[in-house]
Structure formats: C-alpha cells, structure tokens
Simulated assay, not measured.
Amino acid sequence: MSLTLQVLLEEGTEVLSKAGVTEASLDAKYLLFEAFETDMTHFLLDRNQRLSEEDNASRIRNYRAMIETRSQRIPLQQITGSCEFMGLEFFVNEHVLIPRQDTETLVELVLKEYKGRKPAVLDMCTGSGCIAVSLAVLGGFDRVTAVDVSKEALKAAQKNAENLLGHGSITFAESDLFASLEEQKKFDVIVSNPPYIPTKIIEGLQPEVRDFEPMLALDGKEDGLYFYRRLADESRRYIQTGGAVYFEIGYDQAEAVSGLLRAAGFAGIRIIKDAAGLDRVVCAIYQ
C-alpha cells in the first residue's frame, strides 16, 4: 500500500483509539496537520497522493512520535504547544491549565459590559494569561494586572502577552492571591478562574486532566470553594466601591459562590450561563 496522508491519518487514529483517546480521529488529524504544516483544504486536495518516504522522512517520524505521545494521554495542546482561545493563539505547556471554551463566557461578558471603557483590571489566578491577554487585546484594556502563585505559569502568561501584545501592556505579579499586592491599589474589575474542583473529584477526571494538567490550577480543596471564600473576603480591600467581580464557577457552584459574595458585602449578584446552558460565571458589584 502506498503511503499517503490518508493512510497516516488512519494509522494514527487506530493507535489513539486503542489508547482510549475520546476524539481519536480529530486528534490524529490535528497532529498530522502539525507535522506536515498543512491545513484541511490542502489535506483534502492531497490526502490520497503518494508520499515520498525519503523526502518526508522527518515529517512522518515527527507525526508518529506525536501520536505515540498522545497515546500516553498527554493533552494534544501540550504536544503542539498551543491552544486557540477567543480567536487568539495561546502558548501552553504543562505548567498552565489549558484554556477552555467555557472561560470565553467570562471574557465575552467583561468585554461587552466595559466596551469603550478602560477599567483597571485584576486577573487573579491568571495561568496562561488567556483572560488577561484577551481583555487587553480585544478590549483595548491598558491597565491589566495578572497574578499567579506559580512562577512557571507566569512565564507562560508573559510569553503570551509578548506574542500577542508586545511588552509593557500587562503587569505580572507572583503572589498567593492578594498576599503580595499593595492594598492601596484599587481595581475597577476583578476577574478569576480559580481552582474549583473538589479534591475527591479529581481522581475520577480524564487522564489528560488528572495526570498532566497542574494540580495547582485544579484543586479547589475539600468542597471546591476554598478559593472563592478567599476571593470574596480579600477582594474587598482591592476593589473600588462600585467595582465588579467576575468569577468562573463549576456548573453546580452558583448558589454557594453567590452566598459567599453576598456575605462579603457584594450586591447585584448575577449568574451567567455558558453556551451549553450551564451556570458558568458569577458576577457582583461591591457597594
């Protein structure tokens, strides 16, 4: 049988299917495109053309190596080193949570509600910087501070800021939530996608998440609410009166997080659903 892109795709799909990868065909296709530096249009045109194994040896070898890596359940985005979020291409690695489409709900909401304005924004638990950088790029926000406890995550976030914005557009700070921030600095908007998965739930997650994404970005402690308690309490010292908070939540955490914010003196609490119709963002005003 002649070696073609279609044959390689089927070969990769079979390997990933046997490894239990959920979207084996799709992932094999992404890796094929990555290895051969092609896209869907050119793949459809060329997929049945015979490949010269001599001329394409390095590409074929790279593709098969990536398939083998993916078969170990290492996330696709960590293999390619990139992930699309809000139409932007973000660098990702093993030190940051891979940006999810769910989080676009939060970013889209802030962009809509602050259109034409230049609020001072604090992105707490920034990870890859996907929220902070997206707000700066798409909203033109020029006073954004991004905070994370992980030095390695901040390196990835800074790289994304440099790639998508250039230097100096976002201020980065290494801190355990607000611990290292100056209290006299006040923000108009505080956003966060904190760790919110209860510890006991993590063991049952897909291997890609459980074994390869940073535990720091996943573990919300016993009930998943540890960071929301701190955010609700500590945000008050860093937000302007009339300022707003926007927190991503798990689908079943709206009532609990709303209660924490209400008890901390926030009002105008709203629950925003994601594209799938699940509760995804809690937002509130500090009075």
Rank of each mutant, 00 (worst) to 15 (best):
I79K: 09
A136C: 14
Q78N: 13
M124G: 12
G81H: 05
N62R: 14
C130D: 10
E94D: 11
T126P: 02
Y114E: 14
V133H: 05
A132K: 08
A57K: 11
A57Q: 14
G81W: 04
R61D: 10
A136T: 13
V144S: 11
C130W: 08
D142L: 12
L122Q: 12
V110P: 09
K115F: 06
L111I: 06
S71F: 13
V92P: 01
V144F: 05
I60G: 02
S128V: 00
A120E: 06
T103E: 09
L106Q: 08
L88T: 09
S82H: 15
L88Y: 04
Y63R: 05
S82N: 15
L106W: 04
L122T: 09
E104C: 10
L138R: 09
C130H: 01
I79A: 08
F141E: 14
Q78T: 04
I79G: 04
Q78G: 03
V110C: 12
K118V: 06
S128E: 12
C130P: 03
I60P: 04
H95S: 13
C125I: 11
V137W: 00
V107L: 07
E94V: 00
E113G: 04
V144I: 14
K118F: 02
I60C: 05
G129S: 09
E108P: 05
G139C: 05
L109R: 15
Q72E: 14
R73D: 09
I67H: 04
D102N: 10
G129R: 06
R64E: 02
L135Q: 01
L111A: 03
A132S: 14
G139W: 03
G127K: 01
R70K: 13
A65W: 10
P99T: 01
F91D: 04
A136E: 09
A57V: 08
M86E: 13
E113W: 09
I79D: 10
T80F: 05
V92Q: 00
D142C: 05
M66N: 11
E108S: 14
M86G: 07
F91T: 15
R117C: 00
T105M: 06
E84R: 07
V121G: 07
L122E: 07
L111D: 15
T126C: 02
S71A: 15
R117N: 00
F91I: 14
A136M: 02
R59H: 00
N62L: 11
Q72H: 15
H95R: 11
P119F: 00
F141A: 03
R64T: 02
A132Q: 07
R100V: 03
L109D: 07
I131Y: 03
G116C: 13
R100E: 14
V92G: 01
G139S: 03
L106A: 10
V96D: 07
V144M: 08
E89D: 14
R70H: 10
A120K: 15
C130N: 12
R117V: 09
L122C: 11
T103I: 04
F141N: 05
K112A: 11
L76K: 03
R59G: 00
A132D: 06
L88A: 06
V144N: 13
G140C: 05
